[in-house]
């Protein structure tokens, strides 16, 4: 029966960028765009949730760069470049903390700051080395039918309210207590 809920099409797997224990009772999957201002607003909210829920919450981030954001695709590719050196989350944080400075020169600067090789990033961006990985993440979001960015899935079900701390923590509390969305 169709319960009207939108579900995560691609389960969390070994290729995902994950923070928190794999057996956490609640998993938050975000489809985000590093240039999307609403994702920028949600960024500190997710950070606060991580602090407050600790081991009870696992966080996953997947890129969903929108065409209307000129720098989002390169930013996502830079994050994947950083992931190869196990620095995905550092780059993720840096990008969200500098949403309005995502030119290639900025991205190279962030790489330098994270002790990554800016020359290698420049080549990777030019040759779109990481575009296929980003595209795969985006296709997963399309497959799920996400309405826009940010899109948050809590235990595989799309969270449809505004992504405020109150709304998200309320839903997480409910899941911790009842074990499911209903």
């Amino acid at each position: 029966m169709d319960d009207g809920l939108i579900r995560l099409a691609v389960p969390v797997g070994p290729d995902d960028h994950v923070r928190g224990p794999h057996d956490a009772p609640v998993t938050l999957v975000e489809y985000g765009d590093f240039e999307c201002p609403y994702c920028g607003l949600a960024y500190p909210v997710v950070k606060q949730l991580e602090r407050d829920y600790g081991d009870r919450l696992r966080i996953v981030f997947r890129s969903f760069p929108l065409e209307q954001h000129a720098h989002a695709e390169a930013a996502s590719e830079a994050a994947e470049f950083a992931a190869d050196a196990d620095r995905f989350w550092e780059m993720h944080d840096t990008l969200f903390e500098h949403q309005r400075a995502l030119d290639v020169s900025n991205l190279l600067e962030y790489a330098r700051h994270l002790k990554l090789d800016p020359e290698a990033l420049a080549v990777a961006l030019r040759e779109h080395t990481y575009a296929a990985i980003v595209e795969e993440q985006k296709e997963g979001g399309d497959e799920s039918g996400i309405p826009g960015t940010p899109a948050f899935f809590l235990n595989d079900v799309l969270f449809e309210d505004e992504a405020s701390y109150e709304n998200l923590s309320g839903a997480i509390d409910y899941l911790l207590k009842h074990g499911s969305v209903r």
């Binding site: 169709d2 319960d3 009207g4 809920l5 449809e160 309320g170």
Partner: peptide, 16 residues
């Protein structure tokens, strides 16, 4: 129209 039951709240929404 879809009826949704989420987090203890029932709501009515439109399927895109």
């Amino acid at each position: 129209i879809v009826e949704k039951n989420m987090y203890g709240k029932k709501s009515i929404g439109i399927q895109r």
